[in-house]
C-alpha cells in the first residue's frame, strides 16, 4: 500500500511541476506552487524526514508560497509584455533536449548510488550523548555543524539588508509595505484576532519540542512571523520603521549571542562553538532562545518587504 501511495504522490508532484512550467498565466502557476509545497511535505514524511516536512510546510511551501502569491498579483500588468518574448521553437527544443539530458544523467546517477549507502547516522548516534539533546537534527545543526547554522542566520539577515537596500532613498528608515486599513467588521479582522494567539502558541510549542522531537527555531519562527504579518495585513498592527534602534538590536541579538557563546567555547572547551561537558544542552537551549525572536522578526520583515513609507 505504501508503494502505491508513494507512486501516486510522485506522479502528483510531477504533474503539478509540469503544470507550473506550462501554465499560461503566472498566477495559476503560483497557485500550483502552493499546492506543490504541500505535496512535498507529504513526500518528506514518506522519506522519514518529519523535521524537513515541518520546514517545508512552514518556509518552503508556506512563506515562499505567500510571497509568490502576493508578487504574482502585483505583477499582473507585466504579463502580456513578457509573454510576447517567448522564445521560438528551436530554443525550446534545445532547452527540452538539454534539460532532458540533465534528468537522464541524474537518473543514471541515482540508479548508480552505492549499496549499502554510506551514512553518518551511526556516528551521529554515538555522539548524541555529548550534546544532551534528543533530536538528532538539532544535534547536527547546533553541535556538530553549528557553524552552518550560524552562517544561515547571517544569510537570513543579509537577505533582509538586501531587501531594505531596494528602498527609495527618500523613505530610508521608513516602514516596510503598504499600510493596511483596519475594518473591524471584516472577516479578515476577526481571523486576525483569533488566529495569531493560537499560532503564537503553536510556534513556541514547535520551537520548544525541537530539542527532542521534530521541530526547531526556524519552523517556530516562521509560524510566529506569519501570524504577526496576518495582524499587519488585517490592519491591526503596523510594521515598525526600520531605523528604530531596538529593532536593529533585536535583529542582531540572536546571532551575536550565538557568536558570543561560540567564542566562550574557545576559553572553556578549547574550540570555537564547542560546549563544555554537561553544559551542552543548556547552551544549545540558550542559543535557540536567543535566535527565536531574532529569526521571527527577520523573517517577518523580509516578508513585509521594501520600506515604502516615511517613518513620520
Amino acid at each position: 500500500m505504501s508503494e502505491a501511495l508513494n507512486a501516486g504522490l510522485a506522479l502528483f508532484v510531477l504533474a503539478l511541476a509540469a503544470w507550473m512550467v506550462v501554465a499560461r498565466d503566472t498566477f495559476a502557476a503560483v497557485v500550483g506552487f502552493v499546492a506543490y509545497g504541500l505535496l512535498l511535505t507529504l513526500v518528506w514524511v514518506q522519506l522519514h524526514g518529519v523535521d524537513v516536512a515541518l520546514t517545508e510546510g512552514a518556509i518552503g511551501g508556506g512563506l515562499t508560497g505567500a510571497m509568490l502569491v502576493a508578487a504574482a498579483a502585483r505583477l499582473r500588468r507585466t504579463e502580456a509584455a513578457a509573454r510576447a518574448e517567448r522564445p521560438g521553437w528551436p530554443t525550446r527544443a534545445a532547452a527540452a533536449l538539454l534539460a532532458g539530458g540533465v534528468t537522464a544523467a541524474l537518473a543514471v546517477a541515482v540508479l548508480a548510488l552505492p549499496v549499502p549507502a554510506p551514512s553518518l547516522a551511526p556516528e551521529t548516534a554515538a555522539n548524541m550523548g555529548a550534546t544532551g539533546v534528543g533530536n538528532p537534527i538539532t544535534g547536527v545543526l547546533l553541535a556538530f555543524r553549528a557553524v552552518d547554522t550560524l552562517l544561515e542566520t547571517t544569510v537570513v539577515l543579509l537577505a533582509l539588508i538586501g531587501v531594505w537596500s531596494l528602498a527609495p532613498d527618500r523613505v530610508w528608515g521608513g516602514r516596510p509595505g503598504p499600510r493596511h486599513r483596519a475594518d473591524p467588521n471584516e472577516t479578515l479582522a476577526y481571523l486576525a484576532r483569533v488566529l495569531p494567539p493560537i499560532g503564537l502558541v503553536v510556534g513556541v510549542y514547535i520551537f520548544w519540542v525541537g530539542a527532542d522531537l521534530p521541530g526547531g527555531k526556524f519552523q517556530g519562527a516562521s509560524i510566529i512571523a506569519a501570524m504577526w504579518l496576518l495582524a499587519v495585513m488585517a490592519g491591526l498592527s503596523d510594521a515598525p520603521p526600520i531605523s528604530r534602534g531596538w529593532l536593529r538590536l533585536a535583529l542582531v541579538g540572536g546571532p551575536l549571542v550565538f557568536i558570543a557563546i561560540g567564542a566562550a567555547g574557545v576559553a572553556t572547551a578549547g574550540a570555537f562553538l564547542a560546549y563544555p561537558d554537561g553544559l551542552a544542552k543548556l547552551l544549545i537551549k540558550a542559543i535557540e532562545w536567543a535566535l527565536l525572536p531574532s529569526l521571527a522578526l527577520t523573517l517577518a520583515l523580509i516578508l513585509a518587504g521594501v520600506p515604502e513609507r516615511p517613518a513620520r
Binding site: L120, A121, A125, I137, L141, D148
Partner: peptide
Amino acid sequence: WGGDPVPQALLITGLV
C-alpha cells in the same frame, strides 16, 4: 533512525 540525520539537517539549511 529512518534517515541519515546529517543530510536532513543540511536540507533544513538549504530550504532556508
